[in-house]
Each structure stands twice: as C-alpha cells, then as structure tokens.
Write a protein that binds this DNA or RNA. Structure first.
Lengths: 153, 153
DNA sequence: ATTGACTGGTTCGATATCGTACTAAATGGT
DNA sequence: ACCATTTAGTACGATATCGAACCAGTCAAT
C-alpha cells in the first residue's frame, strides 16, 4: 500500500539515507572513542575540533547551537574539557551573563595527538571512496545539512 | 605542515565527511525525538524499524551488532520497548541462553503512526535532493558503511 | 562423560544526556 | 528610570549509555 503523499517514495529514500548516516555515525563514534584516552568522549573532541576550525572564543550557547544539543549538555561537555585543562572559560567582555571558550596549548596539542592516533583507523577504509566521490558526497551532505538546519525554524 | 601519509588530504576529506554525517545525525535525531511520544527515544524506534525491515525474531545480540552498540545498551533499549508492549521477548528454541525479539501489533501500529507524524518534518527539506542524487548518495554511503563495518575486524 | 573455553544475556556502578526550574544580566516599551 | 520579557548559563533529577563482572548454556577436545 503506497503512501498518499505527492512524492511518496522520496520520503522512503530520505529515511534510508538518514538510516545509513546513523549507522556510519555509530561506527565512527565507536572507533573514535576506542582511540581517545580514558574517559574522553567524542563530543569533547568535536568541540575542540570545532574551536580550531572556526576560531575559539565562542560562547557556550553558540557551541550548543552548532552541535544541536541542549545547552545543559554543552555545559557538561565544557566542564569536562576544562577539568582536563583543554579549554579555558573566560568572562565575555561584551556581556556579563556570557562566557567565552578558549583553547589552551594542552588542548591544541591534544587534538594533534588524537588526530594522529585516529589516522590509522581512517586509513583502514580510506580506499573506499576516491577524491572525486568524497568531494561530491561531502557537497551533497553539506547541502542537506544546511537545508535541515534552516528548516528547523 | 603536511601530514606524512601517502594520501594526505584524503584523510582530511574523510574527517570532513564524518563531521557532516555527525551533524546531520544530530539534527535528525533531535527532530525525530521531538515527534516521538513522551519518553520514547530514537534507538527504540530504530529497533522497531529494523525488525520490520529484516523480519522480527532477531536475537538481542544480533540487534546490538546491527546497531553497533554494546549488548548492555541493547538490553536496556529492549526492556523499554517491552515495557511499552511494542515487542515481546520469547525464548530461542535453538539456544537456551538466547532470546528472540518479536514485534507486537501495538509495535507495528506505533511505527505506522510515528512514520506518519514524522513525514511532515521530512517533507520540510525533501526538496533538497532529487531522486537520482538520493539514490547515488545512499549507494555511496552504503558502500562506505559496509567497508567500515568490515574494517573493524 | 568431563573439563575448559566461549557465548548470550543481565546486573551493577559510573558517566552522559537531557528537560525543568532557577538566577543574573540585558533589552525594550512606556 | 521602571518593570516585564528575553537571554546566558547553571543546578538538579531522570533516564540513557557504556564497561566490567557475572551466570548459565554451549561447544570442543579428550
């Protein structure tokens, strides 16, 4: 029995896509965390990574939005990073309610080490897609990501 | 300073890809859970969905492997589903240690309802990719997923 | 048949994640 | 200036996730 929608099977394909994405995410998460030291967890690494990519000094709320997690979760993640000395929380000069998250030297070198230790895992399947395929699939997913982001009002 | 690897920038592209995947996964997870009733959570829905797609009667361990989660997590997820009456745990006739997970009528109708209530969310961005793009990106990711799955020994 | 290794599942304790409720600072309308 | 509303962050309690240890059933070698 087909759906009653205007473009019925499209939805099914999107479900399938999100499903694949979920599985890959789970696989990479498991692999990543296996490499990270002791209790270090993927979101913490992701935050460091993000701060490198888009400059540090972000506020906790900006980070929470970037990762689509509740701000309480970000508070927790940042607390963990601060306890390990990978980030430093400073007051926001523009807004006394707010804070800024800055990477420490330890945080930066940790990222380098982590990426290096992750490389072999990536290398284990890096022959799957060639450069052109990678570039294309990244572009496609980025398009979808932006659209989804915009769609959530 | 460039990496010392044979195909340096490839790794970077893979990181980028996994990053996009992570964000999309987070976005869809948030959207999905917003629709699901009360304390119902994405992994529970995913299990029901999986049981429909590949026939129910799977064992908990098979499910844990399919989703790449520890078996303890699956035990917990299944307990939740059973408490809600969406699945039924039966003894495995072939192995007394093992169990089988079967969908109940309630579980099946719940899935129908959930998918219907999710459809509008998908529709909100379903104009982003056309059928051909979808098919292609799904195929590419499926290839990567299988490769990653195989790579974890 | 007996024993030792292995496998499927649960229990338990530690941490992560999240929603609700709260505090303090900023903003906007009068 | 004043007060109501909004915004940034935190505290707290509930649930989810996970690793380690455990138990019972299976398998394989003898």
């Amino acid at each position: 029995m087909p759906e009653t929608n205007a473009a019925p099977e499209l939805n099914g394909l999107y479900f399938q896509l999100l499903n694949e994405i979920g599985i890959i995410n789970q696989l990479s998460r498991a692999a990543f965390e296996a490499r990270l030291p002791d209790g270090m967890v993927l979101p913490q690494f992701a935050v460091i990574n993000h701060l490198i990519r888009v400059q540090d000094g972000r506020t906790p709320l900006q980070l929470a939005r970037a990762f689509q997690v509740p701000k309480t979760s970000m508070t927790h993640t940042l607390a963990g990073l601060e306890k390990r000395g990978f980030v430093e929380m400073r007051a926001n000069p523009d807004d006394a309610r707010s804070k800024q998250v800055w990477l420490t030297e330890a945080g930066r070198t940790f990222r380098q080490t982590a990426i290096a230790s992750l490389a072999p895992d990536v290398a284990a399947f890096s022959d799957t897609l060639d450069r052109d395929e990678l570039v294309e699939v990244i572009a496609t997913l980025a398009r979808l990501r932006k659209r989804m982001d915009a769609a959530r009002d």
